[in-house]
Design a protein around this nucleic acid. Structure first.
Lengths: 175, 175
DNA sequence: TTGGATATGTAAACATCGTCAACACCCGGA
DNA sequence: TCCGGGTGTTGACGATGTTTACATATCCAA
């Protein structure tokens, strides 16, 4: 529910909750644990957002999942940044890496199925790696405002994402 | 030259330089300006790294540039994170967005040429957007240690990058 | 040669931050 | 009844970014 950024202070959280600065330590080991918990909620929200669009023909599901991924990042920049922040020691929060799996699995499953039904060609694992990197990259560029010169439009995020995805899949798509 | 991370403190920099905590303010407006200057050096280093591999047939240049981009990120994580940090207000540092153009232009030029010579098919702008997003995404996944489950190998960064790029280009490549 | 501007540094202070230790309260079960 | 766990507070510590006032060094012009 709290879609903040990385610059969220522990004290600020306490302030907004109307408690003293030390109160959060009754619930979280430290600031990183607090942020980690928020990131965990983010992964669940992402999963929900992906599930919501995961329907139709496999090839369409791949497209929709990719677009939804980028749209989620644009709509919840704080969460997204937090979820993939390098400042969160992955090793210290196994729940985080666990929570990050379902979203990925949805994409992997859709691609696998698309390949199985002959709607995509190529190695499913390679395709998944590629698609994942692609949407992750678009998301980051949109969030950072970079790629503005590259024609990555921050207004029509969904359209831009769809276009990029199509460009990548055009060769792998069976006519 | 200083390939640090985002967690570089202004005081820490001063300490390492053997000066007082306030000394940096003689050279930079604030911490963000300092980091921005470091990021600027990073963009120049990236440009140099890309130029160094920008030779051969256009289609090979595209591949080499993409791989070099990811390898740069892996070899200079601090710089890379800094260069694309969301915490650096792009608008306040026009030199930064200016410095970020050359690396992109190299890729755009290689793709344009590859299309012109019939080694790639598709709209050059679309292809560039896609390729840029792709390598940017791989770089971030490698740096963050995410995508480990996705088979994004952090040991053989160059090999992984090449594979992802090939997967994306296979359809756009004229046999 | 002298004098003043310019560049660079320092020390001291301020507000803020993450964190911890000691203490206080409330409330449910023996 | 009491007492123990969950939750909160106060106050402090060290660290940070930043500002202000003050010092020094360097170098060019009168």
């Amino acid at each position: 529910m709290l879609d903040e950024g990385l610059d969220v202070g522990l004290r600020a959280v306490a302030r907004r909750a109307g408690v003293s600065p030390a109160a959060p330590y009754r619930h979280f080991a430290d600031k990183e644990a607090l942020l980690s918990a928020a990131a965990l909620e983010g992964f669940d929200a992402l999963r929900a957002a992906l599930v919501a669009v995961d329907e139709g023909a496999p090839i369409e599901r791949v497209r929709a999942l990719g677009v939804a991924y980028v749209v989620f990042a644009a709509e919840h920049p704080g969460w997204f940044r937090l979820m993939f922040s390098d400042q969160l020691e992955r090793a210290r929060h196994p729940a985080l890496v666990r929570a990050s799996r379902p979203p990925f699995s949805l994409l992997a499953a859709a691609i696998r199925e698309a390949v199985a039904r002959g709607q995509l060609r190529g190695d499913p694992r390679d395709l998944t790696r590629m698609a994942w990197s692609l949407v992750h990259g678009v998301a980051h560029l949109v969030l950072g405002g970079q790629g503005r010169g590259a024609g990555i439009d921050e207004e029509d995020v969904a359209g831009t994402a769809a276009r990029v995805i199509d460009t990548a899949l055009v060769g792998a798509t069976r006519a």
